[in-house]
């Protein structure tokens, strides 16, 4: 059986093709103005890498905020459902799953079999998602890729007062003007967002084994701040940003 999962995120679209439980290929594109077109790009990339045609796919399931606008999909699954199913595959021991994307963050509690028991979501506010870090790295004029590593060099913990990403940008600029070292500002930014995520995770309950998925898991500064906030280690699976797409492809297999 060959299935595909399409994760229609706010910023990126990710496609994963699965054959009898093995990952055949992945595809990725930036979500442009025409998301259907962007989905097609990622989808075709994955098909090409897998060396198959669309007709050979038994089932295609879409997930993510834009899941209704994936033209290829034969079915959809919620973000929470896909994240839980995908995380169960790659980190079966995890009962708490933290999934942070560009525009949304969520904490999910599962029963150990990939079934969702409970979840909490932060959406429609940039303060609790990847966009926050992105906006702050721009304000600091540091590449997003370097921003996380930079905060690991910090020697001093400073508080951030602003919650809103727009107001936080001004705060970052005034900290810069006050000659605050960039690495300390970077740490303050990551600590601030990690604090918000941790409080969301507490609402569903912190289990001993926690998995972190989504694109923000690539940011070492955030991961460090999150671990400190949770007072625990977190499992970051390989290809953590593809876990949603994997979950969708698995849901397609299950049905």
């Amino acid at each position: 059986m060959i299935t595909a999962g399409i994760d229609m995120g706010a910023r990126s679209i990710r496609v994963l093709i699965l054959k009898d439980g093995e990952v055949l290929a992945r595809g990725e594109s930036t979500a442009g103005f025409d998301t259907a077109e962007s989905a097609e790009l990622a989808f075709n990339e994955a098909l090409e890498k897998a060396g198959i045609t669309k007709d050979q796919l038994d089932k295609i399931v879409a997930t993510g905020a834009g899941r209704e606008s994936a033209p290829q999909a034969t079915d959809t699954v919620t973000d929470v459902g896909a994240a839980a199913r995908g995380a169960h595959e790659v980190a079966p021991q995890a009962r708490t799953i933290i999934d942070i994307g560009a525009e949304e963050g969520r904490a999910i509690k599962t029963n150990g079999n990939g079934k969702v028991m409970d979840f909490a979501v932060n959406e429609k506010c940039a303060a609790g998602a990847g966009s926050f870090t992105e906006a702050m790295s721009r304000a600091l004029e540091v590449e997003l890729e370097e921003f996380g590593a930079l905060s690991l060099e910090s020697t001093e913990s400073i508080p951030m007062n602003a919650q809103c990403a727009v107001f936080a940008e001004s705060e970052v600029v005034s900290l810069l003007h006050a000659k605050t070292p960039k690495q300390d500002i970077a740490r303050a930014v990551h600590d601030a967002i990690a604090d918000r995520i941790v409080s969301m995770v507490r609402r569903v309950g912190i289990e001993p084994e926690i998995a972190l998925i989504g694109a923000v898991s690539r940011n070492p500064g955030f991961v460090d701040a999150l671990k400190r906030g949770l007072e625990r280690d977190v499992i970051i699976p390989d290809d953590a940003e593809f876990v949603g797409a994997l979950g969708a492809a698995l849901v397609a297999t299950d049905e």
Partner: peptide, 15 residues
């Protein structure tokens, strides 16, 4: 005042 959603979170578990 600007973060009560987070500060109150401990008293408001999802279940």
């Amino acid at each position: 005042r600007k973060k009560i959603k987070y500060d109150c979170a401990d008293c408001k578990p999802t279940t």
